[in-house]
Write a protein that binds this DNA or RNA. Sequence first.
DNA 1: TGTGCAACATACTTTTTGGTAGGTTATGGG
DNA 2: CCCATAACCTACCAAAAAGTATGTTGCACA
Lengths: 124, 124
Amino acid sequence: MAAALSVISGKWKLSIINQLLSGQKRYSEINRAIPGMTEKMLSQQIRELEEDGIVTRHIFPEVPPRVEYSLTPIGQELSSIFYTLETWGSHYMTVTNANGEIIKPDYTCYTLIKQDDEVVKETA
Amino acid sequence: MAAALSVISGKWKLSIINQLLSGQKRYSEINRAIPGMTEKMLSQQIRELEEDGIVTRHIFPEVPPRVEYSLTPIGQELSSIFYTLETWGSHYMTVTNANGEIIKPDYTCYTLIKQDDEVVKETA
DNA sequence: TGTGCAACATACTTTTTGGTAGGTTATGGG
DNA sequence: CCCATAACCTACCAAAAAGTATGTTGCACA
């Protein structure tokens, strides 16, 4: 589990993998597809993914250069993690938004259980 | 998916949730069960989990204080994420260790595809 | 001679995260 | 009267991650 987390942790890695799930792409394509990500982050994180055996890099020795990235077999199996995360995440968001209101921001709400087992709600 | 990741990211959160998957536990129990984690980290991360609606806190107003933590329903559903991460992770480790050797550390290995489509392997 | 291109690298700064060391509370026991 | 207890909090510091800005390559085109 730690191994799985270490592979996918990184602000842009899941976005990058998501792009490659739909097939081989080149550097500039991925770059355009993920707004907000700088080129440095793309090359850094995609290199880590390569070192971890998730993506393969195909360099075409042309000028100007062309590099295409694709997922390895084990990289493609990450789609199960995608699916689980998405399923839980969307469920999570509907739960925290039940009743049409957001539950999360109630930071200072404690459930006090008195010694006579009476439950008291206290909001600081 | 981003929501799911933001909830579980944090060095100790999965360990804490893992503890609570086996039932309600008090602060000191969790603390003892996770070696290497400081008390500050426990209270900080468990508070974030509480704010995110993953755990509930039950304060018993006794002296010395007693606080018990348990997973909310949506928190318990995180077990599916645990399962997927573990499954992929163990598969990943057997794949990178095929042939009894580690594939990952070959950092500077590029696959060059020449313009005549001949594949050349270059190790810098 | 100069500009643009794609895919980077490198140095530097900022932000986020984690860790260390101390203090706080009220009470019961020595 | 002092200490130990459980569950914290606060200030401070270090490390890791992310972001910004700029430089590099070699060739084609103007």
